[in-house]
């Protein structure tokens, strides 16, 4: 069982943490799981249950990590004139994103830009849009209200959109 689960769990941990911390998080998760396996009530798949424990572990580790690359969320949200019109208009993105950059590179750019978001927004974005958790599950995991999750998710998506904008305009694809 252990060997089969390490791969998928390590993949999840790498989304949140650097390599060394991701390995530590997986190891610590397995130790927790081995000590608490009798509390697993079979309400979800075993892997899902272990993943929840791992993600909590990753979030706790992320909180204690100093991150230098984070950009304040307000710097990434649209700004408006007094009449409610946007200061900077939005150029349209190409219909096919493959026209801009190849798929693998695009994934790398998305990952790099997610890492620039403040932790409070990054975790909500990852749990909701990448891990596919519901608003309620995300709220429970982060000890937030469902409303707060919605607000953070919307802001995080807008911020990531702003970070991806230069790439989509073909201005820069530097990682």
């Amino acid at each position: 069982m252990v060997e089969a689960y390490i791969g998928p769990l390590l993949r999840v941990a790498r989304r949140y943490l650097c390599e060394e911390d991701a390995c530590d998080a997986v190891q610590e998760t397995f130790i927790k799981v081995l000590g608490a396996i009798q509390t697993f009530r079979g309400e979800s798949r075993l892997l899902t249950w272990i993943q929840r424990i791992l993600i909590n572990q990753c979030i706790n580790k992320s909180r204690s990590q100093k991150r230098l690359a984070e950009i304040p969320i307000d710097d990434l949200l649209p700004s408006y004139h007094e009449d409610g019109h946007r200061v900077t208009p939005t150029p349209a993105w190409p219909e096919s994103l493959n026209d801009v950059v190849d798929r693998e590179r695009l994934c790398g750019l998305v990952e790099t830009n997610i890492a620039k978001l403040p932790l409070a927004y990054r975790t909500v974005l990852m749990l909701r849009d990448i891990e596919g958790m519901s608003g309620k599950e995300t709220a429970e995991m982060l000890d937030l209200s469902v409303g707060a999750v919605k607000v953070r998710l919307h802001r995080a998506r807008q911020a990531l959109r702003a970070l991806m904008d230069p790439v989509m305009q073909g201005d820069s694809i530097d990682l």
């Binding site: 150029p91 993105w93 990448i130 991806m164």
Partner: peptide, 20 residues
């Protein structure tokens, strides 16, 4: 244009999850 790019951002994120 903003809405389409916002929707494309969500698609990129979902794809990130599927690929992973």
């Amino acid at each position: 244009a903003y809405m389409e790019s916002y929707k494309a951002t969500i698609s990129l994120l979902k794809e990130q999850g599927i690929q992973a």
